[in-house]
């Protein structure tokens, strides 16, 4: 319940969330609270609803919320269209970033930044300032200059696409980043680069939700909390050691305990 005397200070609060995809219930009473400054990892077997959660939060069409509520900085997140969610400071790092042929990478990024700045009453960033900013972040992500002139994800390798997602995140500086299996398909060097990018954005104001299969990523981005998602709800939460235990014992261990 909203209470004027005790305003919700959580960055993200998910309560009893149920969601369907193509008529099938995937999220089944999920609750989660993320405070500013925290990093949460959501782990779980294939089909447990991890990516669905990320998609529902970002507002992807085709996902129907049937029950529950989500507030973001105290606002009703689910009533906002996807672009408004992004402008409010929510970022989704895609599991499979799409290619948009002919649309320049930097052009898209600049349009995104300016759209978000406009919502916040800030002037458009000028071209020189913007390029300086992007170059600085690209350096951190070890991306080559040629990337500037390429089409959005056009012909990118899997690793390049993921690095591009993190680059976008660094430029847009969201309040909450939801990274959907950003580690999948990355070799160890790329994983370190991606992790360095994510860590560089950690601050007491921001938060991050990492959706991942493997605990490997968590060696580099140390989470405050780890949650295990099974059949659309969180069945177990703990600290970093939970991830290690999962790695050792497998999801059946938790699934069995949850049954």
């Amino acid at each position: 319940m909203e209470n004027m005397k005790n305003p919700d200070t959580a960055l993200l609060r998910i309560e009893n969330l149920h969601a369907k995809v193509a008529g099938k219930e995937i999220l089944n009473g999920l609750s989660l609270t993320v405070e500013r400054g925290e990093v949460h990892a959501i782990m779980g077997p294939n089909g447990s609803g991890k990516s669905t959660l990320a998609s529902v939060l970002a507002g992807r069409p085709g996902y129907e919320v049937t029950q529950g509520r989500v507030s973001f900085e105290g606002r009703d997140l689910l009533s906002l269209p996807p672009e408004e969610r992004a402008r409010a400071g929510l970022f989704l790092g895609f599991q499979y970033p799409v290619e948009i042929p002919g649309v320049n990478n930097v052009y898209l990024l600049k349009a995104a930044l300016n759209a978000q700045r406009k919502t916040r009453g800030l002037p458009e960033v000028d071209a020189f300032e913007f390029l300086t900013l992007v170059r600085e972040k690209m350096k951190l992500m070890r991306m080559e200059d040629s990337f500037l002139s390429r089409g959005v994800n056009e012909g990118f390798s899997g690793g390049e696409k993921k690095r591009n997602e993190i680059l976008q995140m660094l430029v847009l500086e969201p309040q909450l980043a939801i990274l959907d299996e950003t580690d999948s398909g990355l070799d160890i060097d790329a994983l370190k680069i991606v992790a360095a990018g994510v860590n560089s954005l950690r601050s007491p104001e921001r938060a991050c939700v990492l959706v991942t299969h493997y605990q490997r990523l968590l060696d580099y981005i140390v989470p405050d909390q780890v949650h295990v998602l099974i059949r659309g709800r969180i069945v177990k939460s703990g600290d970093k050691s939970l991830a290690l235990e999962l790695e050792r014992r497998g999801y059946d261990w938790v699934a069995g305990a949850a049954a």
Partner: peptide, 23 residues
């Protein structure tokens, strides 16, 4: 493609325009 742009804060109108121009 459209959702990708929306999820970056770009409005539907601008997003479609961008995708078509790219095409």
């Amino acid at each position: 493609q459209l959702f990708y742009c929306l999820a970056r804060g770009i409005g539907a109108e601008d997003a479609v325009n961008m995708i078509v121009s790219g095409f």
